[in-house]
Structures are given as C-alpha cells and as structure tokens.
Design a protein around this nucleic acid. Structure first.
Lengths: 261, 261
DNA sequence: GTGCTTATGTGATCCATGTCGCAGAACGGC
DNA sequence: GCCGTTCTGCGACATGGATCACATAAGCAC
C-alpha cells in the first residue's frame, strides 16, 4: 500500500525528463519504523496552543507516509491532500518553468509544515515537493483542515503568522535577487540557512547541500555558485566538503551579504 | 493636527536624500472631505464576513488620515499603527538597501489593506510606504487589531488567505526575476497590473505608471525598461502616453510573459 | 506664448553571469 | 582493490542589462 502510493507520486511532471531533480530511484520502499513513541504533531509550532488531547485527536487523522530520496511528495496532479508535516528527512519545494528551468523555493527541515497555501484557497500552481532525503511525512486532507484547523482561531492565527514569515523571507530574497550581486546572495543565503540549523558539536554549523542545490535556491548556475563558494572558502568564511558546507564565520558572511557591488 | 502628523511622517528615512522617491512636496495639507457617506471598511474584502453593525464598530476605531502625493505613510520609525486601509489614492510599498537602491514590493489601489505583516508578529523591517497620489487612509493600532481582529476566526482566516495570495504572487515574481529575461518580466508585470484594474470605458485597461515606477517594480533600470516598452509598443501590444500605459493585447503579452529566452 | 520640470528615447561602452566543455576528485558498490 | 556516478573546479567565450551621457518631448505654471 505504501509502495503503491509512493511510486504513484514519484512519477515526473513531464514524462520522465527531469534534469532539475536527482535521478536515484531505488525500488524498495521505506518501511515505517514500528510504533514511534512521538506524535507527528508535538513540537510543531503550528499546534503549540493545543492541549495534548487535542493534538492526539488531530494526530489520529494524520497518518505518516514514507518517501525515498528523490520521490515526489506532491505535484500539481495531487490536489487531495492539503497539509503536510515533515517528521523526518528533508524536502525541497520548487517550481519549474515550461523550459525546464527550476527554482527552489525552500528546503525544509523536520518539524516544518508545508502545503499551507492550498488550504488557504491558493492552488499550489506549479509547485513541486520532492524528498531530498528519505523522509517521513504526515498528511491532512483539505476537508479535515477546513473543519478542524481553520475554524480554530488559535491555529488560524498561527497559520497567518507562519505565512507572514514566509512573506518576509520572500521579500528578502526578492531584494537580493533584484539588486545584489551573486556573492552577496550566496552569503546571505548561507546565513539564512545557518540560522535554521542547530550548531552541531563544535560550534560550527554544517549545511548539507551540494553546490547544485544551493544554486537552485539562488537562481544562479552551478558553475558560478561553485566559483563564489571557492572564493568564500579562500577567505576562510566557510569550509567545504562534498555535499556539505561548514560555516566558519557567520559575521563575515553577514557583512558580505549586504554589500551591493 | 492632520498637518502635524502628515509632515511628521513625510520626513525621509536617511536625512533628506531620496533619489528613489518623488520630490514634490506641497505644504498645504489635504483637508478631509466633510462627512463621506461610505464607511472606510465596507467593500474591503477582509471584513466581508462581518455584519454591518460590526463593521460600524470597527469603523469607529479607524480614523482616516490624508496624505499628499509623495508623503510617507509609514517607515520603520513608526511602529504604532498596525493595519492600514487605503480608501483613496495609490500607495507604493518599497524597500531600500543601504546603498540607496529601491525595489517596489507593491503598488496598492483603493480598497487594499496593508501593514498586515506587522500585526502577524513580523516587523516591517525596511519597508516603506509612500503615497504616489493624494491618498486617504484608515488606520488601526496593533492593540485594536490584536483584540478585535486576530481573535475573530472569520477575520483571521481572511488574513491568512490574503497572506497566502501574497506568497503566491511573490513566488511568481521570484521565478520571473530568477529565470526570465527582461522582456518577459515586463510583459508578465503588465498583465498582473492589468488584472487588478477595472477596464475603463472602451475595453482597454490603462495603467498609470511611469517607466521609472515600472522599473522599480521590475528590479530593472529605467533605461532598459523604456527600451522594452518601446519594443512592445512597436508590436502593438501596448500604447504609451506620458505616465500611462494602455494595454492593447493582453493575450499577446501573456505569451511573451512565459517566453524564456 | 516662454520657460521649467519631469518623462521618454537612444547609443556607446562595460561587466557580471550564463553557457559550453572538460578534467579531476570524492564517494558508493562490489 | 576497481569502476561508475556524482560532485567540484576551471577556462574561453557569448550576452543581457547596467551605466553613463545625452537629446527630445510633453505637460505645467505663468
């Protein structure tokens, strides 16, 4: 059953041509870990105002599904489910133009809620969501959301707040893209990513992204991103590893981030 | 009293140097038209679910203020008021970088609500609002909003919906900026502007913007915007007048809008 | 009308990134 | 160990817009 659903959603938007997406596609589905003790919903900010009993009730409605690295969590073709809660793994939200170019809207970490725009009347248009690590995701249908969440002012307010944050972030990115050179955009993006990350063992924050994924987030090419990253590394602001970026000097990056030319 | 407030807010963010803003600054304040028969709040989508009595109640709290073309409605320095309702005139929301470059986030028409991000916990950061026509604007303080609006699920939902639309629009713009050439961006922006406009007398939509204002919205220079506009005009997609753009062929523009290169 | 101010047209550069084409390096599987 | 795949690093080159520097035109004040 899980396999059924998963491969279902994993099919590419346009046939099977997807230069903007990882190609790995193993065919052994992820099995649910048996009896996770933690609710899908605890530690999700959206439900912070609810009592344990209420959370439990909603939890019943939100079955987890499992996605392998590279599988699609949703695409336009899937308008049934409204709200997704990322329990484990990471998910990339992105859009694709007719010509096959992609821009990453967000890279989500565990605890993130997504798909909120659908439940607020918006279609997700050409937004796609794809697991970039094996992931575990809870889902609520639009009907359930409409009935149990939007009607509750505590949650509606949280949703509004969450959307407000998104607006702020998007405006920030728009500014960057419109009037800052690549180096500043890279720096600013790294800072933003670093903030949403717990600083691992030794004070340094590690970001697990390839240059390619970072480029998708920047609206730049992999090549120029690589060049800029090399430059930042040579200035000891970051250190590089294959698929990982270690932030050495957040303040230095922040300064670069607001440089214009 | 009105004069007092108005000149108060009209002061520029950094001293008086504002290349990114109109210079006109008459010093006779606008006088309120006596006894407008229409409430500030009717015909505002946000309050569509409320009864006339409730609207009336809120209306009492929302005094109108008058701003001259070029005056600032708010800047960072004014954190008191939370929600603005544009009754008459037009307002431009924009951000400025340290270097003095500006990007216009939105151009608002009568009936629009703005400042919603503040009331949702967001600071407006470096957002400014400036009247680009003589304007009449109602205001609610954050306290009032908190107390009467956010707690009401009907309104909270509307706010969420409104923010959701904004997110969608911003993502659209981000895509445009990231991966479409200027001509497509101009076309797409014109289409978007045309949609939020009532098609005047003879079917044609007229947009009242200078090339400069349009450029601010595009994240491009006035020069390249002018060139592109001339091109569009030569293809009979639009017609030009000083400070006004007449949309002749929306469909033609829409096609250009999705062209990549 | 005259004259001032603001909007638009245009052309000659320049420069940051995109594009294309490889080569080397790091990892994963066997 | 070896091999294939995925990442990263360059370099040569093309190009869309930005910049700068004006010329012209349209409207407003008088």
């Amino acid at each position: 059953m899980i396999e059924q659903c998963a491969t279902d959603v994993a099919s590419a938007p346009n046939g099977d041509w997807r230069p903007w997406s990882p190609h790995r596609r193993e065919n052994n589905p992820l099995q649910p870990k048996n009896s996770e003790p933690f609710s899908c919903l605890s530690s999700v900010e959206l439900f912070a105002d609810l009592s344990p009993a209420e959370i439990e009730a909603i939890d019943q409605m939100a079955p987890a599904r499992y996605f392998r690295n590279g599988e699609f969590v949703f695409s336009q073709s899937e308008p049934v489910t409204a709200l997704f809660i990322l329990k484990k793994g990471r998910v990339r939200i992105f859009r694709v133009t007719e010509e096959g170019k992609a821009l990453t809207m967000a890279i989500l970490e565990p605890g993130a809620v997504f798909g909120e725009m659908m439940l607020v009347g918006q279609r997700m248009y050409d937004n796609y969501a794809e697991a970039i690590e094996d992931a575990e995701i809870c889902q609520l249908s639009s009907a359930e959301v409409e009935q149990f969440l939007l009607s509750d002012p505590r949650i509606a307010t949280r949703i509004a707040r969450h959307l407000g944050e998104q607006v702020a972030r998007l405006e920030e990115r728009l500014i960057d893209l419109a009037l800052r050179p690549l180096q500043a955009r890279v720096a600013s993006t790294l800072v933003r990513l670093a903030e949403s990350q717990r600083p691992s063992r030794f004070g340094y924050v590690t970001i697990s992204l390839t240059h390619d994924q970072l480029a998708g987030l920047l609206g730049a090419t992999r090549e120029s991103t690589s060049k800029t990253m090399a430059d930042l590394a040579s200035r000891n602001l970051i250190r590089q590893g294959r698929g990982r970026i270690i932030i050495i000097d957040v303040d230095g990056l922040s300064i670069l981030a607001r440089k214009m030319a």
